[in-house]
Design a protein around this nucleic acid. Structure first.
Lengths: 358, 358
DNA sequence: AGCCGTTTAGCAAACGTTTGCCAAAAATCG
DNA sequence: CGATTTTTGGCAAACGTTTGCTAAACGGCT
């Protein structure tokens, strides 16, 4: 029966603040104040209001609040469109860590995929300029642009994660990619290795560049020629890191002078490379040592267990969140731009001394 | 300069609809109509408005619109708190597929982790009742409750993915877990296997139950006693599926009468189990055949390559989205509740005939 | 040319909060 | 006990859209 007033739509889902106020016998504004800053209202009244709210199962409308105060409580994370290179293994971990930190700060997490198409860029910009989000964590080296709108023109607080974007004035949380690879390579050199194969990621990618440089630096430090390292892959831009490893194994098989150690940009390519190469008959670590990057949990269970440089992704995620929170609370406060959290090599059976019969 | 009564207005960054209207020389309402349903406004005027909007880089404020029309364009996906059992390997794929489908429909994706703590449940309910989200895709078998608010009381359109929740009247997109395992088991039986080890997930979990039943049914159909299968794990509730496999390998080593085939609830446990068991000296598939579930890309590169029952997660995600869209557009329209998308066994080297020296 | 039917533009009222401002009440002090 | 300070409650005006309603403009008929 529609004995009620006829004009308001039946769409209304929940109770309103007005309902709470009525039930508690106070004014709407009092309810608002009681819920927002409980200090500013009489304890007895506050209790009454709380009870009323609970009884009605009242939940404040986030959009109305957002509209009024001009800010939302949503953070967006911008992921590279193709999840399957490199960072693929770590992204779920990152996501989870970030989401947890955000929850603790009362924020929600929205995810946005940055593909290379115009639609996805517009999508993200709508989010950024439409007031929907309050800040962003970006896991990509390029920022979306659409027509006259450019991501960096938005006043949005942004933090870059995994990629060093400090040159673009973005606070960045990164790991010591280069140094970690340099050290790992140095360790391989100390084990007698003199010829290396480097499994590259997509050409020009930040991580690929840094990690490769790390290897090169280690060679230089040991007085080895740059020709001691062979780059594989790189020009390919396969979606799956796994396929890079497969292709690299084929390249490896064709090399006349075999490297004795392999450095991989990511765990997936190392796993598939190792698998292929072993099936071709090479022994790991006897014939060939392998070290990779990322620290995916699965590495522990490959055969042999894969040595990998583990990024403390959980910690990095938390750091990114707390940086973002600072940025939101005090946008103008100058702060360090580049935050490095150290990765460390997990030594497993996939590497050992160079074979003597070089 | 405090004569401005309202100071929060200072903060606002972008151009407003009023600015566009002024620049185009029309009324605000005309702009709104031109942008929303272009058919209802003079083509010439519309072009003028479009140009003005583009020139200003105008983006409509999503919260204001949401408040007015009473709906948002955000879908939330509820993930189980501990990503690391079972579905872990497939979640990134699911997420990506879903996000892509949603984008095409003009929706954004918000993620919510459903941990077992009160805070996370409240978080989700705030989202559901606060008008922030328009619908939800849930990947968990239990629904959040907090005080007097219960998730199912929200009028929110919901679709369940991976879990069959049709008994709770939720449209569900699932795979044929039971049947797929039954068929795989039957295949193992045909290969001569008579004793099985089943690697279980968390006790009572939907997938664990279904998949186990599939194995049991296959035994029954072949006239084998139920004692032909040994359950391992299950009571553990480790975060990492990998650890389940490790524990199971230890159990396996202790068994007096060794099974000749292993059926695993998830790929991660199969991978770690296989790794451990091989290091103990067993040969796969000569001594032991293994089949698992999920279809993680990594399975192709284990040693030996792991046979797994692949869930078409991309397709399942798309189906979930389209179901949700239907539900949003026509909430009352009756529709099938249970949607099954078939998984299929990918046969790789990890299984073969039972050893003859049983 | 006048009438009527069809578009198109504009006004103003919502949507559900927050919050500045003022009044009322309570508390403190002389 | 009255005056002054502190606290607390209520009114109403925003926040930036959408949209029902009405007025105006336009064009096709007779």
């Amino acid at each position: 029966m529609k004995n009620n007033k006829d004009l308001p739509a039946e769409e209304h889902s929940g109770p309103l603040m007005a309902d709470v106020a009525r039930l508690a016998g106070v004014a709407i504004s009092t309810v608002s104040r009681a819920l927002a800053n409980p200090g500013r209202v009489n304890e007895k009244t506050r209790a009454k209001i709380d009870a009323a709210a609970k009884q009605l199962g009242y939940t404040p409308n986030a959009m109305a609040r957002g509209l009024r105060v001009g800010k939302s409580n949503v953070i967006m994370i911008i992921l590279p469109g193709s999840l399957y290179y490199g960072v693929s293994q770590v992204i779920p971990l990152v996501l989870q860590g970030i989401n947890r930190s955000l929850s603790q700060n009362g924020y929600h997490l929205m995810i946005a995929n940055l593909d290379r198409d115009e639609a996805s860029e517009r999508h993200i910009l709508d989010l950024a300029f439409g007031g929907t989000v309050r800040g962003a964590i970006i896991l990509s080296s390029d920022l979306p642009v659409d027509g006259s709108r450019s991501f960096k023109d938005s006043a949005l607080p942004v933090v870059s994660l995994l990629y060093d974007m400090s040159h673009a004035a973005l606070p960045s949380v990164v790991t010591n990619d280069r140094q970690a690879v340099r050290e790992a390579t140095a360790e391989l050199i100390a084990l007698g290795h003199r010829r290396f194969l480097y499994l590259a990621g997509p050409e020009g990618n930040y991580h690929d560049r840094e990690r490769y440089l790390g290897a090169v630096e280690a060679l230089a430090a040991a007085g080895l020629p740059e020709t001691a390292i062979v780059r594989s892959g790189g020009s390919l831009d396969y979606q799956h890191g796994f396929q890079i490893g497969v292709a690299a194994a084929a390249e490896f098989a064709d090399l006349i002078l075999k490297p004795t150690a392999v450095i991989a940009t990511s765990d997936d390519m190392a796993i598939s490379f190792m698998s292929c190469v072993q099936r071709m008959g090479w022994k790991i670590p006897t014939d060939l040592s392998i070290v990779s990057f990322d620290g995916a949990p699965a590495c522990e269970y490959s055969l042999p267990p894969l040595s990998t440089i583990e990024q403390p992704v959980e910690e990095m995620g938390q750091m990114a969140v707390s940086l973002l929170m600072e940025r939101i609370d005090a946008p103008d406060k100058a702060a360090a731009l580049r935050h490095v959290i150290e990765s460390k090599l997990i030594r497993r059976e996939s590497f050992g001394p160079a074979p003597s019969n070089i």
